[in-house]
Design a binder for these strands. Structure first.
Lengths: 320, 320
DNA sequence: TTAGTTTATGAAACGCGTTTCATGTCAACG
DNA sequence: CGTTGACATGAAACGCGTTTCATAAACTAA
């Protein structure tokens, strides 16, 4: 394959001039410009991007770290980030971590080694300090609430959002309210737990540890919740479920099992996936597009560290 | 940042020796090896991957082309490919094309420019010839039925699979069978159409153009089908729907509208998403994991061009 | 002891485009 | 007429790790 030197020889100009033509710099005479393009076409020349990357130190690659790419929540997020990347001539490198620290570290190492220009972390697995250390090597945008000086963040206010959902159920006369989360140890789950505890205290309600359902992420996890509810002597009358998928499965199971929703059991889910509309789920609408856009922008904007927090809208349908 | 030359000076060895130590080559004395590691640690040295990429001509990056990453079909596929990539120390670069030819071309150009080692195309947008031209620059694996000499393929036999579904409905005494597809112009849709036409002919059934529903991809498209069915004077009694999502939405609409499934309308969908189990959909199980694995392997295996075709299993539940 | 390996090490070439700096020309401005 | 700025062009330095080739010492089998 021809390289830029060959082209320079063929067009009888310097490599600098070839580079200028290829990069659309001004200050090249028409004659030389044409000669270069002619040589480029004749030899079917194209740049070696790795040489460009080495030379410029940029790759126009942004890493995206997420646990699973086959879960609607993360794939919506990925979709939104991808759309934004596309619009800005960036490409995305996908890091599917399955919540493994090492996999996330690989992404951080790529940032360090400058194979990617920035990194969007949709769900953090490593310690905060570990991640923060890498901020000196490139831009990191994190989907998490923080006011870090080194890492930009975009997040939704899980505390307020959760409280909003709980309040709504309370207003509908529910006093036995439980909730389902993905991972008890997750950052967002902890914010929600804090909101829940505070809510119970404020309303003078007692805490039932079995009203908290962990490991509810995938569609089929809705059935596990259903089974657990059946076995309970004093089940909750309402649930906040942090995923439309899980809620949809639960609703389906309840329909089949003769549990009336919302009368026997009220539900508020999260995401507002199209499915939520048809399953008539009352849900908290997550603004995926906005989150994806902000995260991407934070991952490419130079220097400044910013923090966004987004509002979540309660969409009332028929499960409360 | 220190580079390999600095390390060489610090450790008082040649860059070759440093390179050897860093890449775990034998033939380095213990003394020098230690000196190099010491220098590496002291100066917090790490390789510039772009220099490595330039030098070796490899990037350990595989491109994945798909129209949407937020659709379960494609995100399952992506997930499977990603798992395989992870297991082989490769990273994935995502190209979300939204079926735009130019976006797909960008991926092909990256292959040409050696920024990626191989390319998996999950849904082709460009002409066959256009894609095939790029096979000389790197490995291409395509999710499509073909016996190309230059491009490896993995696919499911859409013709037979569709026929299997149609036959099953026929055995259940359906004579007015329609189907829903994603894109009429898509390769798989054409194979299905061929199967459908052949089936009608063989069974001596007449073709109704309004029994074919195009543009059924997303969950909410199920409602469009429902609306259209309501307006038809002589609606089909059975449908093959190439997505669990669409089928699930349609089932939900039918339940609400008082259309009895399977008695008024029988359905066979595709994918066998977890949702299909709970919605009790009779479905054609797509082996995403196997497809993803094969595609990835084809995208990295050197030289040989292979073709796989996978079987699809009919999972009987309660919509037929 | 000789011939043939194996181990060890470094110089130099290689992969290739970008960018700074120096130099030169020509037209416009005062 | 001299200065200034816009336009044009190329040499050379820069980014940096890998790999081939040559060389030499140490060891082993005959």
């Amino acid at each position: 394959m021809a390289n830029i030197h060959d082209i320079a020889k063929m067009a009888d100009v310097s490599v600098t001039t070839v580079s200028r033509v290829l990069n659309h710099h001004p200050y090249v005479s028409d004659a030389k410009r044409e000669a270069v393009w002619k040589a480029v076409k004749e030899s079917n020349y194209y740049k070696n991007i790795n040489a460009v990357n080495l030379s410029t130190g940029k790759t126009y690659l942004i890493g995206v770290v997420l646990p699973y790419s086959d879960h609607p929540y993360f794939s919506k997020l990925l979709h939104a980030i991808s759309n934004q990347a596309l619009a800005n001539q960036y490409k995305l490198v996908l890091f599917q971590t399955n919540y493994q620290k090492e996999k996330e570290l690989e992404a951080l190492e790529m940032l360090k080694q400058k194979q990617i220009d920035g990194l969007v972390i949709c769900s953090r697995a490593n310690e905060w300090n570990t991640v923060e250390k890498y901020a000196i090597y490139g831009r990191i945008a994190l989907l998490e609430n923080s006011s870090s000086k080194f890492i930009s963040t975009t997040s939704i206010n899980h505390f307020d959002t959760f409280l909003k959902a709980l309040e709504f159920l309370y207003q509908h006369n529910h006093r036995k309210i439980g909730y389902c989360i993905n991972r008890k140890t997750g950052v967002s789950s902890q914010e929600r737990e804090a909101a829940y505890i505070g809510f119970l205290k404020q309303k003078d309600l007692t805490f039932h540890s079995d009203y908290v359902f962990d490991q509810c992420l995938h569609y089929q996890d809705g059935e596990k919740v259903y089974q657990q509810l059946l076995e309970m002597k004093d089940p909750p009358t309402a649930l906040v479920i942090t995923s439309d998928q899980v809620a949809a499965c639960l609703v389906t199971c309840c329909q089949r099992g003769g549990i009336d929703i919302p009368n026997d059991l009220a539900l508020i889910s999260y995401d507002n996936h199209p499915m939520a509309k048809y399953m008539e789920l009352t849900t908290m609408e997550i603004p995926f597009d906005v989150i994806g856009k902000k995260l991407f922008e934070q991952a490419i904007e130079p220097d400044s560290v910013t923090h966004h927090q987004l509002e979540v809208r309660l969409i009332k349908r028929n499960t409360v």
